[in-house]
Design a protein around this nucleic acid. Structure first.
Lengths: 213, 213
DNA sequence: ATTTCTTGACTGATCGATCAGTCAGAATCT
DNA sequence: AGATTCTGACTGATCGATCAGTCAAGAAAT
């Protein structure tokens, strides 16, 4: 079993990790203003003071959660993006796959961070800064990749396609319960892979349609 | 000047309307938990007590804002939906137009409510209830309309298309600043009509692509 | 022994909500 | 008509609870 690290380091990292995990869950469920430091400390099993000791302020703790998770996601996204064969026929689909998969996989943080991520996109000034800092660089790589798939298009069009695809992702992500509700109780396939592939098909179809318009 | 109503009634409605307008702006900018009743009262030019006098609680005031705006949007959406010729070739595009336009037009409440609307879709339990109550009925009409465009599809697929289209709308709505950023300062067309039409093309292309998959 | 980690006790500010009470005008009574 | 009662709109003061953040001192690790 697991404990490979030295016991002293273990204790320290355990508290920090518990805080980050609890914060991710808490912020996802209640939002930045909805989650109190006291409640967060309780759900992490530490004292409220420890949050300030490690992170200084609520803002920095929030930023740390987003930076940690976005770092993992960006790493995976860039890796997938670079692995795409420039001559592949389904190149655009692979671009969207590189965009969608990391947000849904293990490093994506599951439903919890998906909520935060979706909130970031529509968020306020605080979120805007975090998006700029943690997501814009990788986003530009995707815009460039999309642009490369349509030589006759403008970068602005590629950026709009990127944002629209992000919207598809965020709308589908945190709220799969509603699909079943709107379908009137019809049986919902739970096949995650197939679900992602249909999202990708939607994005590809949308992108091509914008180009032809 | 304009005051057609009796002065006593006028004073009452003015306060109520000012509260609703200020609340819509405030909730859009700061979110439910971020906007305090005291700050809201100040920006509406009334006492904090009056908010509770008229609405009872912060939750009910929030619900009133959403109910008021969603009612206008739903009305317009249903009107456009019913006006669609069943045999029209671009029927699916008209369905998405009926979905998108009211959220962007004058009854959509502008950027302010667009923020709230986008937040609702990814929101928490409180928002979930409001969505169910204020949006699901009309949403089912759209799912049915989409389903009608693809006779061989399942209702679940239609529901997923509807949600994906909503995602396209919400992602494009409140954050047009980012598109320019990601495009590297390239000039952004401000033609609203053309922008909506490209969103519609994206949704139509995505829907068809899902069907063919 | 010294640094690092963690805690409990505490602060001023602000939260949503409630209170008694003011005020203007409509309704009712004489 | 004049005095009275009633009602709805509205306010300032204040409630207990909770907010984020601070601090000195204990606990643990090196």
């Amino acid at each position: 079993m697991g404990a490979v690290r030295k016991p002293n380091h273990d204790a320290k990292l355990d508290a920090l990790e518990r805080i980050l995990v609890a914060a991710e869950l808490g912020f996802a469920e209640k939002g930045f203003d909805g989650l109190g430091m006291k409640a967060l400390a309780a759900s992490a099993g530490v004292s409220q003071s420890l949050l300030h000791y490690h992170f200084g302020s609520k803002d920095r703790l929030y930023a740390a959660v987003i930076e940690h998770r976005s770092s993992l996601i960006n790493q995976e996204r860039q890796k997938l993006l670079q692995a795409i064969e420039p001559t592949a026929a389904d190149r655009l689909a692979q671009v969207f796959r590189a965009l969608f998969l990391p947000a849904l996989g293990p490093s994506g943080g599951g439903r919890a961070y998906a909520r935060i991520f979706a909130g970031l996109i529509v968020g306020n000034a605080r979120d805007e800064i975090l998006v700029r800092k943690n997501y814009d660089d990788t986003a530009r790589l995707f815009v460039a990749a999309i642009h490369d798939c349509f030589p006759n298009s403008t970068v602005t069009q590629a950026a709009q396609i990127y944002l629209a695809a992000l919207g598809v992702l965020t709308a589908a992500l945190p709220r799969d319960g509603r699909a079943g509700r709107l379908a009137g109780g019809e049986h919902l396939e739970n096949n995650q892979d197939e679900f992602v592939e249909s999202l990708i098909r939607f994005a590809v179809g949308g992108a091509v349609a914008i180009q032809n318009g």
